[in-house]
Design a protein around this nucleic acid. Structure first.
Length: 192
DNA sequence: TAAAAGATCCGCT
DNA sequence: GCGGATCTTTTAA
């Protein structure tokens, strides 16, 4: 059973938790690879006022309404990219924001893309930080995550007891909804 | 056409 | 802890 066969469920919260522990792997032009485990995520869907898909399909959000298993990369604050994995059936605007990675492969290459003198934990402990570390930009918006240069690789399910469920970060609407999930005690998470 | 807000990060105090 | 950087997308007029 591939992880991609599981993505079509409408329950984004369940899918967000399912994506914890899965791997994200970036293949660079010269063949170098940067990869790591997903340790922090947030759920967004069209019923949620905090979601880009809440107001329907636009040029930017159409990816969220497309088929699951694709990347939704958007630009924000004039200088940052954030990356999501589109989930849910086609026509349902939903995605899971990837907020932090525990890098396991190509750490030295990721480091070159980030400010100097950072601890390993700080290379990808934030949605825009991990995009910097893996060189993810708008070129990868709408990319099929089943293949390089950016792949999602399934892993066994993380048990509920090891997952913390809390409020999302950096939003102004629906602040109180518990749609952020991270692996308990993991030092690579952006904010405990 | 204009204006405001934004799923953030970093450096300085 | 605070503010600046910096520009796309969306919405309203």
């Amino acid at each position: 059973m591939m992880i991609f066969d599981e993505l079509d469920v409408k329950d984004v919260d369940t899918m967000a938790q399912r994506l914890l522990g899965c791997e994200l792997r970036r293949t660079l032009q010269d063949g170098y690879i940067i990869g790591g485990a997903i340790v922090e995520v947030e759920a967004y869907d069209q019923t949620d006022a905090a979601s880009h898909s809440f107001r329907g399909i636009t040029k930017r959000t159409k990816i969220m309404f497309g088929p699951s298993g694709y990347s939704y990369v958007y630009f924000t604050y004039g200088m940052h990219y954030c990356m999501n994995i589109v989930v849910g059936p086609e026509g349902y605007g939903a995605a899971v924001l990837i907020r932090a990675l525990q890098l396991t492969e190509g750490v030295e290459f990721a480091r070159e893309n980030r400010p100097p003198k950072l601890a390993d934990e700080q290379l990808a402990n934030g949605p825009a930080k991990l995009c910097q570390a893996l060189l993810i930009n708008k070129e990868l918006n709408g990319h099929d995550l089943r293949k390089p240069p950016l792949e999602l690789i399934g892993a066994s399910e993380v048990s509920a007891g090891l997952i913390v469920n809390t409020t999302r970060i950096g939003i102004s609407q629906e602040k109180d909804r518990l749609r952020r999930f991270y692996i308990k005690g993991n030092s690579y998470v952006s904010k405990l």
